[in-house]
Design a protein around this nucleic acid. Structure first.
Lengths: 349, 349
DNA sequence: GTGAAAGCGCTAACAG
DNA sequence: CTGTTAGCGCTTTCAC
């Protein structure tokens, strides 16, 4: 069933059918009604490719999420803990605006090719990228495509410095620095002096922000930065677990608190300590980051910084869509607060 | 940059360019090389819509996951626990076969319209549906579209009964009945006689299978089916929590074990019991279903039935793709084992 | 082996 | 207000 068939049935031309489909004003109500009814009856759906080819938007946005997991590690599922909520809320927001979403996971630098390809092939009207590593060259190339592009979690300073604040881009962040600062200062206010950190990935904007906040909070309060209290978990529970186990078995003096760059790694600390017969929060205080589902599933419940995923994704979708529909055409950026959520994993010294 | 531009640069016609793009044999190696090089140099990407319009496949499959959450409940994120792993592994499998995936969440019956639309608009070559409620009419309509369709978690008996086993469809299941049977019998073998169940949704194939298995396992072993031990959680942690709380406060005699239709609801049992000063597994034994990430995060670690999500999604993708590429053209179905994973949440009486 | 030409289904400028 | 016409960029017969 093509628009021509509808036209014939209605005794009009394809143009008129097209006009009613696209809600053009210049068609009399009677004709419009008739055509609409026929369309309805025959469940006609215009071929989206033909429309796109004729210059209409595709009403599809691309969502590219860069994985923290290893491409070679077989089962990658489950490993990418922020995947779920971002995908779900982006899909949700996009769908409710009448947009479809095309999803791709990016494992390597070469995979960025995929977003370029999707744009050039005109599969999508615009793209959302989440969790990009700090790689200006890649970003520059994508920005150069002139397609609407919104970056979730990317260093805005770097964007500006490289003059990448073009009118087709927008960047959405969370105030991780502030959130992390609040987290560490909470620990300090509780009397902790030996505070360790399980680091995320420094190649990620949020990862480095969380670390920097930790570092300067300690310095600001005149606390020493103990290298062996700073463990590298790369956002992965497994890694964190091994690092903590290593620290525990080393016999070295332990910190009294840990700030972890995400909740998963906080869970690893719980596990490792428990296996050594130590308990949270009596022997170790912990504050995490993300406030994902695990935060409340852990016992004791985890004190953590809430990543405003829902707000961020909704805003990201609104931004791409606005960019696509040219409602806005200027660089923009917004940063949502990441508040500390107090629960039961910290004790006062 | 269009194929014509490439043609000009290569001193050939569009047809020839098209031939090399589509890997047709009748073009001399030299010409092919030359054209390929030019394409490479200019980073030319054929417009996917034009290709699709001209009759080629779109290389895009649709993934429609029906939500267990309420459309009206604001923040739906996090509520749909199986969303993440399915989406992630489907995307992964599809991408590695060179396919894009279009995602949509389905909240209501009307939303099924979306899959029909996506097919009719030719946005996708085929669709995967996961978690469909038992609604033959809807399925019949979708099957009638003649587009490749694979159903994950759907009653194969019903498909056959309604002659829906057409050559464009495939259904992928897990052996939930067997898995659930194993779970309940494990409890029985441990000496439990009063075994309750936190039910999922009976409108779902897997949900009803899990319940039926529970029911007949009890009967087979001559154990009574206590109505007030059968709680309705609809797969949602919240619901389960309230139901269990209700049972606990009722003062009624408690079961010594619970089989829960998913891990989330098992977590709810943990919480509710702990709040009553009761502990797992001393006061209550629990076996869950899914073996998702929470299973090992709970303390004690949850004994649960493993849902072979990765296998199922990979198979689903392979099936749609095969159907799309007409490698197969016959109804098919496969069912993966769901083994019981023994951990620490059950005790012997 | 290769080009010309028709067509995929739609939109949009242009007449009328 | 509405039909005619010319594309959109690619694939694919059909001749040569």
């Amino acid at each position: 069933m093509r628009s021509e068939d509808i036209a014939k049935l209605a005794g009009v031309s394809r143009s008129t059918v097209s006009r009613v489909i696209n809600n053009y004003p210049n068609v009399p109500p009677a004709t419009r009604e008739k055509i609409l009814k026929i369309i309805e009856q025959h469940q006609y759906e215009p071929n989206s490719y033909a429309r796109a080819l004729a210059g209409k938007a595709t009403n599809t946005i691309g969502l590219f999420v860069v994985s923290t997991a290893d491409k070679t590690s077989g089962h990658r599922i489950y490993q990418n803990n922020y995947f779920a909520p971002f995908v779900e809320s982006v899909v949700d927001a996009a769908n409710s605006l009448g947009y479809y979403v095309l999803i791709h996971t990016l494992y390597t630098v070469e995979d960025y090719h995929k977003v370029k390809q999707a744009c050039q092939q005109k599969r999508i009207d615009g793209a959302i990228l989440v969790g990009t590593r700090r790689q200006v060259d890649v970003i520059r190339e994508l920005v150069g495509l002139e397609s609407p592009l919104v970056l979730i979690d990317y260093d805005i300073g770097e964007i500006i410095a490289h003059r990448l604040d073009r009118s087709n881009v927008s960047v959405i962040n969370s105030k991780d620095y502030d959130g992390a600062t609040e987290a560490v200062e909470h620990l300090i206010s509780l009397g902790h002096r030996k505070i360790g950190m399980i680091n995320g990935s420094v190649h990620t904007f949020s990862g480095s922000e969380r670390y920097k906040a930790y570092e300067s909070a300690l310095q600001r309060h005149g606390l020493p930065l103990e290298p062996h209290y700073i463990l590298n978990g790369e956002f992965l529970k497994q890694n964190a677990y091994h690092e903590v186990k290593g620290l525990l078995s080393s016999g070295a003096e332990l910190p009294t608190a840990f700030f972890t760059a995400n909740d998963d790694m906080a869970a690893a600390v719980y596990e490792a300590f428990q296996e050594f017969g130590l308990s949270v929060p009596d022997d170790i205080s912990i504050v995490g980051f993300d406030d994902g589902p695990i935060a409340t599933q852990l016992t004791p419940k985890l004190t953590t910084v809430r990543l405003p995923i829902y707000d961020m994704s909704r805003e990201a979708v609104h931004k791409v869509v606005a960019l696509c529909e040219q409602t806005i055409s200027a660089f923009s950026t917004v940063s949502f607060p990441a508040p500390l959520i107090l629960r039961d994993s910290c004790r006062s010294l």
